[in-house]
Amino acid sequence: MILDHRTYVLHPGKLREFLTLYEAEGFPVQSRHLGKPFAWFTTEVGNVNEIIHIWAYEDFADRQKRRAAMQADPAWQAYLVKSSPLFQTLTNRIVVPASFAPLK
């Protein structure tokens, strides 16, 4: 298993706008292709303009296949046009669970 850990920093004051848009248009299409997220957070302390979400995949090939299908979906492309101006940065990490700390 691999985990795709994604951190987005939004422009100041845009968090509520983004969450409303994502819940209505982004999440339905994304979860249709990627399944349920492993985790999805907003930051309460620290950079409060930040969202973090984590998606689980069997391996890199599974990730590539599912993300390619999502990118090809016109509904996802329409969502990206609306959401992209809200973001400042994206940091993406692929992490692998340690053998001594299995996921529950």
Results as ranks from 00 to 15, higher is better:
11 H>V: 02
34 L>P: 05
99 S>C: 00
31 S>V: 11
86 L>H: 09
47 N>L: 07
13 G>F: 02
29 V>I: 15
40 W>M: 14
39 A>G: 13
74 P>H: 03
78 A>W: 01
98 A>G: 00
49 N>V: 04
13 G>V: 02
35 G>R: 04
82 K>E: 13
80 L>H: 00
34 L>V: 10
14 K>S: 11
59 D>H: 10
51 I>H: 10
44 E>A: 13
84 S>A: 13
19 L>R: 02
15 L>T: 09
3 L>G: 06
9 V>Q: 14
6 R>S: 09
32 R>C: 03
31 S>D: 11
34 L>T: 09
19 L>T: 00
76 W>P: 00
13 G>M: 01
83 S>N: 04
101 A>H: 05
81 V>K: 07
12 P>W: 10
76 W>H: 01
14 K>F: 06
93 R>F: 14
66 R>C: 09
45 V>I: 08
58 E>G: 08
66 R>S: 12
30 Q>G: 15
22 Y>H: 13
69 A>Q: 11
62 D>T: 03
104 K>P: 02
31 S>Y: 10
67 R>V: 12
82 K>D: 12
50 E>V: 08
22 Y>C: 00
44 E>Y: 05
60 F>H: 15
42 T>A: 09
61 A>H: 13
10 L>K: 05
75 A>H: 02
70 M>I: 01
56 A>K: 14
56 A>Y: 06
10 L>I: 01
18 F>C: 01
102 P>S: 01
4 D>F: 05
79 Y>A: 06
62 D>H: 12
78 A>S: 08
60 F>Y: 15
74 P>R: 02
48 V>Q: 12
31 S>W: 07
74 P>M: 03
17 E>L: 13
98 A>T: 03
9 V>G: 00
3 L>H: 04
55 W>R: 08
17 E>Q: 15
47 N>M: 04
53 H>E: 05
63 R>F: 11
59 D>K: 04
73 D>M: 03
12 P>N: 02
17 E>W: 04
51 I>C: 10
54 I>C: 13
69 A>C: 01
13 G>A: 06
33 H>G: 08
84 S>N: 14
40 W>G: 04
34 L>E: 10
71 Q>G: 03
53 H>P: 03
85 P>S: 11
11 H>G: 07
14 K>V: 01
29 V>C: 06
33 H>E: 11
85 P>K: 01
49 N>H: 09
32 R>S: 12
96 V>F: 03
5 H>R: 11
15 L>W: 02
99 S>T: 07
68 A>F: 12
46 G>C: 02
83 S>I: 00
13 G>Y: 02
27 F>E: 15
85 P>C: 07
12 P>D: 07
43 T>K: 06
94 I>H: 07
58 E>Q: 12
58 E>N: 08
77 Q>K: 14
71 Q>V: 05
7 T>L: 15
94 I>V: 14
104 K>A: 13
54 I>T: 10
35 G>H: 06
32 R>A: 10
51 I>Y: 11
69 A>H: 04
76 W>G: 04
34 L>Q: 14
65 K>S: 14
31 S>F: 10
15 L>D: 08
38 F>L: 12
49 N>M: 09
8 Y>V: 12
